[in-house]
């Protein structure tokens, strides 16, 4: 456990030093959301109708931005090979990376989301559920994204390829995330959607570290 804590500590310190990255992610998120009133017009009713969808899609894109760098630096300077040689299983290293990614990407999105929801005139009833759904959904996005990042290591055009791979896999999270918020706004129950999002999270926690580790081993062969 202490080894995992060590790796986690390393990731957090690295993330802290590159604090700018979190800021950039949030700025992108805000920009992406702000584009929509310009695109579809400022009429409050329309914005309220599309708010949940816009926020989730923007969150998806913002999450994807940070994925390319996840393993790249370590891959290039050889740290990844050293990490592979530690007694800690590679899956543990992956989990540490995911945790750091979420803290620098998912958590800031979570904080920025209510403000942006207000800008989009989203119905107040949806705010709490939005946060809950993002809380369950963004770690899943980080987990799935980590598999993608590991797969494209060393490829040409890693960034755009990563998007192509990861976005179809994000679709279920998107669907239930938006559904939860819309259900809350409509006064319906949200338990089912949140439970399913939770199920996705648990399943990703079980499967993604394994898949990402397998992909990393391929990359380092």
């Amino acid at each position: 456990m202490t080894r995992l804590a060590c790796i986690l500590g390393r990731e957090f310190r690295l993330a802290q030093r590159h604090g700018m990255d979190s800021v950039l992610v949030v700025v992108f998120f805000v920009l992406a959301v702000v584009l929509f009133p310009f695109g579809v017009g400022p009429e409050p009713n329309i914005l309220a109708r599309i708010a949940a969808g816009v926020l989730w899609v923007a969150a998806l894109f913002a999450t994807m931005l940070g994925l390319e760098r996840l393993f790249q630096a370590d891959y290039e300077d050889g740290s990844l090979e050293l990490l592979m040689l530690t007694p800690l299983p590679l899956e543990g290293v992956v989990l540490a990376k995911v945790a750091a990614h979420w803290l620098t990407t998912g958590l800031p999105l979570l904080i920025a989301a209510p403000l942006l929801a207000a800008i989009l005139n989203m119905n107040v009833a949806g705010f709490l559920v939005l946060i809950l759904a993002l809380l369950l959904g963004t770690p899943t996005l980080s987990l799935i994204g980590t598999v993608g990042a590991a797969l494209v290591l060393g490829s040409r055009r890693g960034g755009i390829l990563l998007s192509l791979l990861v976005l179809p896999l994000y679709i279920p999270v998107l669907i239930f995330g938006v559904s939860a918020v819309d259900a809350a706004i409509g006064g319906f129950g949200v338990r089912a959607q949140l439970l399913i999002l939770g199920a996705f999270l648990l399943a990703s926690l079980a499967l993604c570290p394994w898949a990402a580790a397998a992909a990393l081993r391929q990359a380092l062969e």
Binding site: V152, G154, R156, G158, L161, L164, L165, A211, A215, Q218
Partner: peptide, 23 residues
């Protein structure tokens, strides 16, 4: 796209296989 994104074809098909199973 993934399979064809690597200079080493062996690496490409191996990465692709992981993706195929995830998908």
């Amino acid at each position: 796209a993934l399979v064809n994104a690597f200079d080493d074809p062996t690496r490409g098909v191996r990465a692709g296989s992981i993706l195929a199973l995830v998908g």
